[in-house]
Each structure stands twice: as C-alpha cells, then as structure tokens.
Amino acid sequence: MSIFVDENTKVVYQGLTGSQGRFYGLRNRDYGTQVVAGTNPKKAGTDVEGIPIFASVGDAVDATGANASCIFIPAPGVRAAVMEAAEGGVEFIVCITEGVPAHDEAWFYNKLKRDFPGVQLLGPNCPGIISPGKCNIGITAGEIAKEGGPVGIVSRSGTLTYQALYELKTQGVGVTTCVGIGGDPVPGTSFIDCLEAFEADPETKAVMMFGEIGGSAEEEAAAFIASSMTKPVVSYIAGMTAPPGRKMGHAGAIVSGGKGTAAAKMEALTEAGVKVGNNPTEAGELMVGVVREHGWI
C-alpha cells in the first residue's frame, strides 16, 4: 500500500499547457500515472498529446473523475489555483511552484483547513509525491525509485529526496511512498501528517525522514515519533554549517534568533529514538541496516 496516492489516483494538471507543466505532465504519464486532464481557461477543448484540456478543475473533475491535482502555475497565480482545485472537488493537491509569497501560503493553508477539511495540500515548493510503480506526481525522476517497500520517505528537500531514493535503490531497498513536503514556511502537509500515514500503512515498515534547518517541524516530528510511532525512523538534517539569519536555498530554511539549528533538531530526534545520519549517504546506510536487521529484504 502507499499513502495519499496509488494506481487509482487520477490527476488533473493545472498549467499542463505551459512548458514546465507539459514536460513533467507527460513524463508523469509515461511513468504510468493516470494523467486524465489539464486546465487552461483559454485552451479548453484542445489537448496536449491526447490529454484533454478543460477550462477549470471543476470541469475536469466532472468529465474525467479526477481526484487529485498538480499545480504548475507560476507563483502569482498559485493562491487562485489552489482554491480552484479545492472548489473543483479534488481531494489531493500537489503544488510544485517555488516562490509563493508566505502570506498567500498562510492564507490558503487556513482557508483549506476551514472550508475544505477533506482536502490535503502538498507543497508549495516541493518535488511532489511518488509511489514507485503506481503513481508519480511532480518532478521526481521515477527511475531512481525502487518499487515495493518496506521504507516510506518524507523530506523537506527535493534533491535530498532523490538522494534518499537513490541510496535505497542501489542497496536494493524499495519504497512504498516518497513524499516531498517542500521547503516553504507554511507547507500544506507536515512531517507529522506523513509519519501518521506511514504508521497506519501496513506495507511501510520503516520511515526515512530528511529535514533541514529553520522552524520547528523536526522537533514537533520528534515529539510525535516518541509518543505515537512504533516503526523505526532514520533521519538526516541538512544545514549543519548554515550561518544564522540566512535563507539557505529554501524560503523556510533559516536559523533565526538561535532557533531552528541543525544541531538542536538532531538532538531532539536522537532523544526520540531516531537514528540520525551525519550525511545523506550515512542515513541511507543506517536505513539499509535497519531493513537487513529485521530481515525485510
């Protein structure tokens, strides 16, 4: 089993007619994802290599039964695109776009919680989600992920997500689902949402969690792991050498007022019984060790 998406997920791409949307939309379809529709109010009625274009997500849902959306809309249009997807009736929204203003993110996060509690938003500023062999929504390269299990991955960083997938694949370890929650200050899906889902998923036996500096999401995840997780967790925190007060690549990756340092996060996770690697490869090796120890491969 996988979390959030599976082989029955039908995806509508908002921005499929744009260069990025088209490139990744078609790549996702080639991977095997059910890419059932695209949207563009000016190009409704046309198609992108056989994928029909609708004026809105609502129209696409009515015509195709889409239950997820993937947003490839430039940052200024993301707030409207997220609301259009929620109002259109999809249950899962993946927003890839980077550079969304933090006030917009805080606004639509709370708006969704209030008016569309059943909708799960992933991102913005994330690589998307892949359940190897079943569904790939976003910009992850499908070929670096081995299908099956027993590991679930959740990460704030795109490239580190790929690193984790690749480390495990080279060691012959499969992945149930890999979720990139994104590096922005207000991510729609948190570590805890994913950890909860992995804990409930019978096929996921262990979880790999890649965090980074800034905010307190890792500390909150550590508290959750200590109180509510039975499955082993392996972690890596990026940003050991980050200078304070600088945004390190992601809008949310900033050490401010001495808070959100990598050292503090690693300590909190270690205290919660998590095995913490000093670099992504070491984390990968720790995970492989856990999997071998339990005889899962």
């Binding site: 990025q20 490139f23 430039p74 940052a75 200024p76 993301v78 776009t97 980077e98 550079g99 969304v100 500023n125 910009i139 795109g158 490239t159 600088r246």
Partner: peptide, 27 residues
Amino acid sequence: REEAAHAKGPAVRGSRGFGRHHRQRRR
C-alpha cells in the same frame, strides 16, 4: 558569494516564479 548568487537569481527565476531547479535543467 551571496552577491554572485543574487546576480544570477532573478535572471534564472524571473517574475514567472518557477525555481532554479526547473530552469537550469534542460531537456
């Protein structure tokens, strides 16, 4: 270093809002 990164930032990203990892990778 930050100045060099900043000088490149807007040229790569522009106001259209996609991130570096989209623009830099060419098919």
